[in-house]
Design a protein around this nucleic acid. Sequence first.
DNA 1: CCCGTCGGTTTTTTT
DNA 2: AACCGACGGG
Length: 735
Amino acid sequence: MQFRAGNEMDLTGLNAPQREAVTTLHGPLLVLSGAGSGKTRVITYKVASLIFDHGVSPYRIMALTFTNKAAREMADRIERLIRLPVRGLLVGTFHSICARLLRIEKVMGGNFTIYDTDDQKKIIKGVLDDLNLSDSRSFSPGDVAGRISGLKNRLITPERFDLQIGNVFDEQFASIYRRYEMKKRKSNGMDFDDLLIEALEMITKNDLLRDKYQEKVQYLLVDEYQDTNRVQYELVRQLSNKHRNITVVGDDDQSIYSWRGADLRNILEFEKAFPDAKTVRLEQNYRSTATILDAANAVISRNKARKPKTLWTEGERGDKLEVHYLYNDLEEAREVTRRIRTRGPKSTVIFYRTNAQSRTLEDELRNAGIPYVIVGGLRFYERKEIKDVLAYLRLLVNPADEVSLARIINLPKRGIGDKAYASLCEFAARLQIGPFEALSRLEEALEFTARERTAFSVFHNLCLALSAQRQETDLVSFVQFVAEQSGYLKYLEESEEEQAGERLDNVSEFINAVGEYVERNDSPTLESFLQEVALLTDMDAVKNDTGEQVTLMTLHAGKGLEFDYVFITGMEDGLFPISRAEEEGGLEEERRLFYVGITRARKWAMLTHAATRRRFGTTTSAFPSPFLDELPEHCIRRIDRTGGSTSFALRDKPAAAPLFNEVRENRQAMPSYEHFSQEDGLLRNGMKVQHPIWGKGTVVMVSGLADNMKATIKFQNDAVKKVMVKYAKLEIVGG
DNA sequence: CCCGTCGGTTTTTTT
DNA sequence: AACCGACGGG
């Protein structure tokens, strides 16, 4: 396929650095691209230009993204630029492309099951049971899963971990880790991390495959490079090693996934890893008003671990941002809703730090009749009913998949309870085969009761029947057949559960999704459908800002998107920044998240603090987020609707209507804390205190509540210390 | 084996 | 508040 045409692509719409990035074809290139500076444009133009102007075959270009949505958008935009459908271009997420390579090269027979976090936890739970560690408080499946993932992201195998065992805890953890890997392998399963690791291993250990892919990848482009982890870095390095035409695009200020293993060093030290790298900086912003950028720049400049840069714009000044102090989360939701009601839902997003915060907002929006969509939260493919149907399909494709077998062997009820299943597993272990395989050798077992034996063979026959049907019909009818014949649909229909109807709907929607997949693909197979689906996110369904409805999502989900109007709710210390992130680089990452939030806005943003909030079923109170103090006063208007008496009420107060007539604007730099008198025994910013060891100092920040209250104090010798108020024996000497 | 109840835990973010 | 797993009676 050749696209070389008489006329060249028109690059005059690009600014100078953008054009430089697009026209730098050879060698490593780092594009440091601030928020809203047109990085997607750069990537798409570059790919289009490679194909269109330089006759590069699409088969030789690989573009890696973090979400399927970003991948799809990129492909669309490239096609629009070239005005021709492009075949063969490898665009996708790291995970999906790796899965594809593994399938093509038949790693694990190309027929592995992708385990999500939920499946992963089930395996780990089994491991903990096996090792009698289930009720040791030190290990929860979730924690273990996170820790294992952290190690795998840094390419630390169980064997390597064994070498760094320091205590009994490590030792136990090591055996959990080892056993987890073993079990997973036995099931022919891969977790998310495995997809990357196995692909990396494949091309490092196999010379032929390495040559094949290094040769193939003539041009490699990586989006959101700041979020790559160690494994992804190695992959990128390996794949680009032959032709060395690698373009990475990213913004260290928008790195918000370190908890998932993202290593900021990848971008900060790109020039070290690729000494001949060229760097292009995109700092002109085409999205936001100057006021928004001022605010964002001021906030992010407080971070130390970053490449200094300043966004600028030729656009207008715009309106000041608003910071609202509200009595509680309900008032917060009302205030946000009130604003949206007067202006309409057009191009508006409401951000929050945690998914749990969405409920109150939803309720208010619904009451006000404002249409909204929620993005994120529970993924479609994570719903129980979907995972149940998926488990049937997975088992048929991969009979070794024990997670799926355990899930459905007694769903609907078939008289195979925990005990019966355990004894089947025991029998299987004796024969050194998997439990599913054991079903076909029941006659060799002596230990089963007649009842168990019957139940097992009923289930086994069901599977055989389903399996036989697979060859007979198309994918959609087959899935329908499975849902019916397994008895699962009937089970849902007869369920007394309130959500049963919704669940049935979801199952039909799932079957529709199978249909869409079949239409979309040239050679659809159940195997690849299952693998694709395992990597889908709810985010992939985000419609691009239709303007018809308000969008609700977490700040993390907002990256890469833009809206005219942005609301950031829950600006409370302990919630945002979230309390768990207090130490090390945690605060800087939270600040980057705040920066991402602000820079989503084209025209205007409003930030809200709720003095009290219902969390975990009880009312809790919190100080305003320290981030609110980092906004330059000339960019914002502060509006206090708490009534002026208590900005955060430690006592309960009946939820009153907002006191609109008591609105006070442009208050002094420090909100809220100033309402506290000394007899509250509480510290506030600016207070002078005496510390028994450090002497006199000024409080610069207060965080946490009650016994957890911490104060950051700048002492006379310029030392800044963070102390626990409870223990520090501080004496207030003025302020 | 199945179902109900009780108690403990949860919520940071996601491929 | 909501969800999950453990436990005990039918």
